[in-house]
Amino acid sequence: MTRSSQQRLRDELVASLALMAAVAAVPLAVTNDYWLGVLIVSMYFVFLAGGWNLLAGYAGQFSLAPATFAMLGAYGTGLLAYHWQVPAWASIPAGILAAALIGMTLGRIVMRLRGPYLALTTLSFAEIMRIVIGNSYDFTRGDLGLSVPALTNNRLVWYYVFVATVVLMQLALYALLRSRAGLYLMAIRDDEIGAASRGINTAFWKTAAFTLSTALAGLAGVLYAHFSSLVSPELGLILQTGLVICMVFIGGIASLVGPVFGAFLVYLASEALREAGGVQLIVFALLVILIARFFREGLWGLARRLLERPAP
């Protein structure tokens, strides 16, 4: 990794930590449960966007199932609690593990292939999971959803659990991207055939990145399940995946801070725009197309470029 790209990664980490510090300070000014709830859900999306960005932005592999893996994590913990009264300290890691293991299995099947296979397979997988969870009524209670024990009803406690976990995720991603593994992933993204010819086991590293991103989605899912005390198949709607992709692109793909920034921005905007009559998705989808077409680096890229422009 070159010095400048290392410097850039550190800048992005610092920017994202600064953003999280600001978020952590919000309860000093805002005490309304509702707005704290909105910020908590935004942080749920930060995990999904962060995981998806690791896979898409740094490893160049496009999955269309981040929301599905969040749903799997949530059902993992939800089903254990509902059917067997497993306590949360055991069901939460089990939920994350379940999402990651399924992710790893799927990754091993599909990551041997290049091209759009991953997108196709994950989309099909999302659809299979929707059908299976929706129709296995006796086990999953279908679209009625499962009620999950809320560990605490104290909003503030949940708020800081989410803030702390996001910070941990950012630090972990930073460490990963600085390491040799990060280097391999970016090499695969930039030129897969070239990377393979230099002896990088591309299938292994792609699968690893996919597994990690599904684990992050699973983490988001279990936290959310216990926060909202409700698990329902809607968590895995393809629309939710669309929202995650919008967040990453609008914030800025292939940067540490872009997805964090994008998740807060897009989710807060969609809450604010709700009253305007559901035009959010139209606006977001249009923005993604324009950004992908003309301005690859998203809002974070724009901000950085403006800041770095030398004085005339």
Binding site: G37, V41, G145, S232, E234, L235
Partner: peptide, 8 residues
Amino acid sequence: GIPEKGRA
């Protein structure tokens, strides 16, 4: 018509 949105 979504439980999650109904909760919210």
